[in-house]
C-alpha cells in the first residue's frame, strides 16, 4: 500500500521560488498565469494493507517530521494497488 503526502505552503507564506518561476514563465510568454506556488511530494510504501492504519501512521509521520505545520499544509492520498 502506498501513501502519497502532498505538502504545500500555507496561504500568506512567501514563496520566493514560486515567484521566480512565475517570472520566468512570464518571460517565456506565459502571461495567463498570475500566481505560482511550489510544494513537495513524499511517497511512502507500506507492507501493511490496512488503509486506516496506514493513513493514521502517515498522519503521525507528517505531524512529527515530514511537515512543518507552522508554514505548511499537507494532504494524504492512499493508493491500494501500487
Amino acid at each position: 500500500m502506498r501513501a502519497i503526502v502532498n505538502i504545500s505552503l500555507k496561504q500568506g507564506v512567501l514563496d520566493p521560488q514560486g515567484q521566480a518561476i512565475q517570472n520566468s514563465l512570464s518571460n517565456l510568454g506565459f502571461n495567463n498565469c498570475n500566481n505560482v506556488r511550489t510544494g513537495k511530494q513524499i511517497i511512502l510504501d507500506f507492507q501493511d494493507n490496512d488503509e486506516e492504519q496506514v493513513f493514521k501512521e502517515t498522519e503521525k509521520m507528517c505531524e512529527t517530521l515530514l511537515v512543518n505545520t507552522v508554514i505548511e499544509n499537507y494532504d494524504i492520498e492512499i493508493i491500494k494497488e501500487i
Partner: peptide, 16 residues
C-alpha cells in the same frame, strides 16, 4: 526552530 524550543519558522531568503 525545528525542535520547537524556539517558535516560528525560517524560510527561504526573500531574494532567493
Amino acid at each position: 526552530i525545528e525542535t520547537g524550543i524556539l517558535p516560528g519558522s525560517l524560510i527561504r531568503n526573500k531574494n532567493l
